[in-house]
């Protein structure tokens, strides 16, 4: 049985369980997942133990998360463009420091919601 835990205020970590023997619960779960994606939640699906991928979409008809299945890649040195001059103007928050841009060639992979453990994280306000 799959589940979706939602990081939330107040109640702490709340969990929705998907039991396919209960059609009403499955319909409700599908509606919640679709609504979360519409509201900009990051749905992080556990693809292997401890390994997660972000769902880019959800197929409501078949109840499957659609994740980007990236090609395996080697560790590469990150691109660092820190500015060192005094009084230099900082750039906007799309800063110049980032892990090296990957060639984001991705196939789509589907994971049934009943088989997946997922964590939902609400949109970020920054900080």
């Amino acid at each position: 049985m799959g589940n979706l835990s939602v990081l939330s205020v107040g109640g702490g970590d709340i969990t929705l369980k998907f039991d396919k023997s209960n059609p009403a619960e499955v319909i409700r779960a599908k509606r919640i997942i679709k609504d979360m994606l519409r509201r900009g939640y990051a749905l992080l699906i556990e693809v292997k133990e401890g390994e997660f991928q972000r769902a880019v979409n959800f197929d409501e008809n078949v109840g499957e998360y659609i994740i980007a299945d990236y090609d395996p890649e080697e560790i590469t040195e990150p691109v660092v463009k820190l500015k060192e001059n005094d009084d230099e103007q900082e750039e906007e928050e799309t800063a110049a420091i980032e892990p090296k841009a990957r060639t984001r060639k991705a196939n789509q992979k589907r994971i049934k919601m009943e088989n997946a453990n997922a964590v939902a994280v609400a949109r970020s306000a920054g900080g």
Binding site: A42, L44, I45, G50, E51, F52, Q53, R54, E98, P99, A101, R102, R104, V119, V121
Partner: peptide, 9 residues
Amino acid sequence: LMMRADEHF
């Protein structure tokens, strides 16, 4: 989890 799932994001 965001780092593990999609570092770029």
